[in-house]
Simulated assay, not measured.
Amino acid sequence: MPANALDISGLTVRHGDVLAVDGIDLRIGRGETVALLGPNGAGKSSTVSAVLGLLHPAAGTVRVLDRAPADAVRAGCVGAMLQHGGLPSEARVGEVLHLVRRSYPDPWPLEDLVATTGIGGLHARPAEALSGGQRQRVVLALALAGQPPLLLLDEPTSAMDVEGRRAFWTTMRELAARGTTVVFATHHLEEADAVADRVVVLAGGRVVADGSSAEVRSAVSGRTVRLSVTEDADLTALPGVLSAERQAGTAVLTTTDPEATLRVLLDRGIPLADLEVRGASLEDAVLTLTTGAAR
């Protein structure tokens, strides 16, 4: 059994004259939960498409569980939820699920699959009558029908409400506990921070950071100081401050030396009301890393 679920070496993808993926190397071990992050055009979806064999790279190699992508998909080793995937509009959920499960030699037991993905009660419903969140859960059930060891998700919660997102990621944690490798691309960085074992940040088709969420956040220096202030509060020339903003009675300061910054605020007689000091968030880190890469 291969040690890695995914081996990508020198992957280069072009869409006409556009270089979408620029020679990336990536190894993902079996059982990992990995978030692919980055702005639009960073190369996330193109990388996922190359792993699924949906496009032919200009250069480089992709191995999925030590198979070529198309072979791995045909063998039922990969399940996928794509951002622009669809369901047959005139079919009922149960019919589609039955058809997909029949295509695998060892499908996921129906009762457990329905319970795991939360689609109970939807069997008789036409696909066109599903809400956005219901549709995503049905697509997840189809992706899992063959019990794939690798699951690829491209913006999986984009149509879900808060409750639906929480239920979805609870399911992902359960799958990871069973040994499924989960690789997902998302713009919801709080989800990546809460769920992923590992974060891979892409910008301009290249990997600009790869590590745990804590490791990626630590790559960005500075802390954020937030406090309530009056309009006449003097926030000029504070030590350590890289940037200062006022937002409806709240000051947001980015500083490399929060103790020195707060000491001067106290010396100026500015009350430290509603004070909050925190390190860089994952969103701060990704924005800094991707902006720097673009420059």
Rank of each mutant, 00 (worst) to 15 (best):
A129V: 01
R27T: 11
L144K: 02
L97A: 02
R198Q: 14
V229A: 05
R166L: 09
L235Y: 02
A50Y: 03
V252F: 06
G43T: 13
D161E: 09
T256F: 11
F168P: 03
A70E: 14
A203N: 07
A3W: 04
G86S: 14
S46E: 07
T254N: 12
A20F: 00
D193K: 14
E190D: 15
L130Y: 00
P149V: 01
G60L: 05
R246F: 00
A196M: 08
T256R: 15
V138T: 06
A5N: 10
G249L: 09
F184K: 04
Q247P: 01
G29C: 04
V195R: 09
G43H: 07
H188W: 04
I24T: 10
E128A: 15
T254G: 10
S158A: 15
L275K: 01
A219F: 03
N4G: 01
L235S: 03
L253S: 12
R226P: 03
C77K: 13
A42E: 13
P2M: 03
A58S: 13
L142V: 12
Q136A: 14
A159T: 10
F168Y: 13
E174N: 06
V207D: 10
R74D: 10
T186C: 02
S243Y: 06
T290A: 04
E259H: 12
D112K: 15
L37P: 02
H188E: 11
P105L: 08
G146A: 09
H123T: 08
D17I: 06
L275Q: 02
G43F: 05
R198A: 12
G292A: 05
A5T: 11
R137M: 00
E174L: 08
V96K: 00
V241R: 07
V277P: 03
